[in-house]
């Protein structure tokens, strides 16, 4: 299927400028121009949206829904095609972080980091413990105010359009448990209301079915297993159909089978909503499966920002975990 897709690429290829590899750093593609004549940017995006959805539905019919291999393949194919024909320049920038810094007295938790996430992209934020991942996510959620720097979501400043932007985002993380004294049904209903979802009852019911929680709908959240709680946390993250999703270790403490199942569900929902995702995890295999790009943090600074393939090529290693260890141990000045 990938080969068939690659064969289609020459049709778009004349549009491709420059000699870079399609899997080169995303930042270098910014300057590329729209390439299909007589189509403005919104039309182009609509066209690609339709193509992507059609392909997704076709593949789902053939291979069944929520198939992790299928979803991953589709994501890679989409990213490969988009990179090849420079469509990533046309995709809306969902999140733009510029020179973001957070200082607590003499300690710098996050130090002048800048990165972007485009529509449909899954970017992984990696780094050793204390690298500044959670602080970054908390700044993106306006739980922590940056010392300096800008956060723009859909081109709007987070501080100035807080409520509007937060209603388009959602998150899940190990530090944010759901209220133990509610049932999953009540919890999802409450969050649907808090995110301003009009058909909140239907939405809660839909998510309970979607994340296989219907059987637990009336059990207290405090009585759920950690796996069930994690699934509920992810279901809550989809309560408002977010266009920017922040997932802080969404599969931590899950066994591999349940983690894989949950990943597939997340990818499926993301695929359907064309949302952008910032994903953190210490599971390198998971990162490799889901990520279009990896932003690597160490001591509060970005030390690498590349696709998994580029990172492997640069380090001459096939194992992302080895790369993680190498980067984590490397002094900042010697990093990428």
């Amino acid at each position: 299927m990938l080969l068939r897709a690659r064969r289609l690429l020459p049709f778009f290829a004349p549009a491709c400028r420059g000699e870079e590899s399609p899997l080169h750093f995303v930042e270098t593609q910014r300057d590329r121009e729209p390439i299909i004549p007589n189509l403005d940017k919104p039309s182009m995006l609509r066209l690609f949206g339709i193509c992507k959805q059609t392909l997704y539905k076709y593949l789902c019919c053939c291979y069944g829904e929520a198939n992790i291999v299928l979803l991953t393949m589709l994501r890679k194919l989409q990213f490969f095609a988009f990179s090849s024909i420079s469509v990533s320049t046309l995709m809306t920038t969902v999140l733009s972080v510029r020179n973001l810094t957070k200082q607590y007295n003499n300690f710098t938790a996050v130090n002048r980091i800048s990165f972007e996430i485009k529509e449909g992209e899954i970017v992984s934020l990696l780094g050793p413990n204390g690298a500044g991942k959670t602080t970054t996510i908390q700044m993106l959620l306006d739980l922590v105010s940056p010392t300096s720097g800008d956060i723009e979501i859909f081109g709007k400043n987070l501080k100035e359009h807080r409520e509007e932007l937060l209603s388009m985002m959602n998150f899940t993380g190990p530090y944010s448990l759901l209220p133990y004294n509610l049932t999953p049904k009540e919890g999802l209903t409450v969050f649907a209301l808090l995110y301003g979802v009009r058909d909140y009852k239907e939405r809660a019911k839909f998510l309970l079915d979607e994340f296989d929680l219907a059987g637990l709908a009336n059990k207290k959240i405090g009585q759920l297993s950690s796996g069930e709680h994690m699934r509920l946390g992810v279901a809550k993250a989809f309560v408002n159909n977010p266009r920017l999703l922040l997932l802080d270790e969404p599969t931590a403490s899950l066994d591999p089978a349940i983690a894989q199942e949950l990943r597939a569900k997340i990818l499926k929902r993301v695929q359907e909503s064309s949302g952008a995702v910032l994903w953190t995890s210490h599971n390198m295999r998971e990162i490799e499966i889901v990520s279009d790009r990896i932003v690597f943090l160490s001591q509060g600074q970005i030390v690498a920002d590349a696709t998994p393939q580029t990172l492997k090529k640069r380090f001459g290693q096939e194992d992302l975990e080895e790369i993680f260890i190498t980067i984590a141990k490397k002094p900042i000045s010697k990093s990428l």
Binding site: E163, S167, F171
Partner: peptide, 18 residues
């Protein structure tokens, strides 16, 4: 305090509620 005790406070402050 109920939100603090049930560790839901982060969810509340990260929501679009004014």
């Amino acid at each position: 305090l109920e939100e603090v005790w049930s560790r839901n406070i982060i969810n509340l402050f990260a929501s679009p509620v004014k």
